[in-house]
């Protein structure tokens, strides 16, 4: 079992405070949805958990409890966070020309001291589960892939690497309904795994993701703070009433700079 604990997290980008005190705890087998309007700080949260350069942590801590250890995530380089069991599914997966999926997974397995003997078979079986056409397996990472293919590629990597806790940054953006169903269903299956259920922090605008991926908790993030936490029914309330009911009535919105930042992803 593993637990990701985010406590009192405040963070800024180019001098502008985006996260103003976030507390979230995600354990194995739980699915947490973080919903919020544009500019609320959702992508910033995922970037900071994974250690993307360009963000400054002002206060708070992120801890990963796994295998009887308590790891100070913010003190670890990105690759060690991943090897320890954190994974980020990116909203806009980066194109890496000339680098193929099997090369990345091989090196990722080597970092984790996992055998690569069956990697090829694993890639093919995971591709089959989410209807990722095998002809895309030999393309450069995310190059010349449609939005749906990119998200299938991300989901394939997630399944092959089998992390403890996954952050999905808008898995549901930029893809068709078939691809969304394939990807969301695979994540739901991982979160229900009998031996090592995946913990999920799913960042999204829309509740359509939850047709397949069933959230245990829904958090509403607005202006850098969690303003409401509830069960799956909260997503339904949002769907009918919108974010307006939860957004703080303040002029001090993080929208502008956070939107600029979201473009980076």
């Amino acid at each position: 079992m593993a637990t990701l604990k985010i406590e009192g997290l405040r963070a800024s980008v180019v001098g502008k405070e985006i996260l103003k005190g976030i507390d979230l705890t995600v354990s194995s087998g739980e699915v947490h949805a973080v919903m919020g309007p544009n500019g609320a700080g959702k992508s910033t949260l995922s970037a900071i958990v994974m250690g993307k350069p360009g963000y400054e942590v002002l206060a708070g801590s992120i801890t990963l409890e796994t295998g009887g250890e308590s790891l100070d995530v913010l003190a670890m380089p990105t690759w060690k966070r991943a090897a320890a069991g954190l994974h980020l599914v990116m909203q806009y997966p980066t194109e890496v020309p000339g680098v193929q999926l099997d090369a990345v997974l091989t090196e990722a397995f080597v970092s984790r001291e996992r055998s690569t003997d069956d990697l090829d078979g694993l890639i093919r079986s995971e591709a089959g589960r989410i209807n990722f056409d095998e002809r895309f397996l030999t393309r450069s990472l995310n190059v010349d892939l449609s939005g749906g293919e990119k998200k299938r590629n991300e989901t394939l990597q997630l399944a092959a690497l089998a992390p403890k806790i996954a952050i999905l940054d808008e898995l549901d953006s930029g893809l068709d309904i078939d691809a969304l169903r394939d990807c969301a269903r695979r994540v739901e299956d991982m979160s229900n795994d009998g031996d090592e259920p995946l913990g999920v922090l799913a960042i999204t605008h829309y509740s359509r993701l939850f047709d397949e991926l069933k959230p245990d908790f829904v958090h509403i993030l607005a202006d850098g703070r969690i303003v409401e936490t509830g069960g799956a029914e909260l997503a339904a309330t949002l769907e009918s009433d919108g974010y307006g009911a939860f957004a703080p009535a303040t002029e001090d919105s993080a929208d502008a700079s956070a939107n600029a930042l979201a473009d980076l992803f």
Binding site: M50, G51, K52, P53, P77, T78, W79, A82, A83, H87, L88, M90, P93, T94, V96, V99, V104, L105, E107, A108, S111, R112, L141, Q157, L161
Partner: peptide, 8 residues
């Protein structure tokens, strides 16, 4: 960053 986020 993309590659490092996979644990490379």
């Amino acid at each position: 960053f993309y590659l490092e986020s996979r644990g490379v």
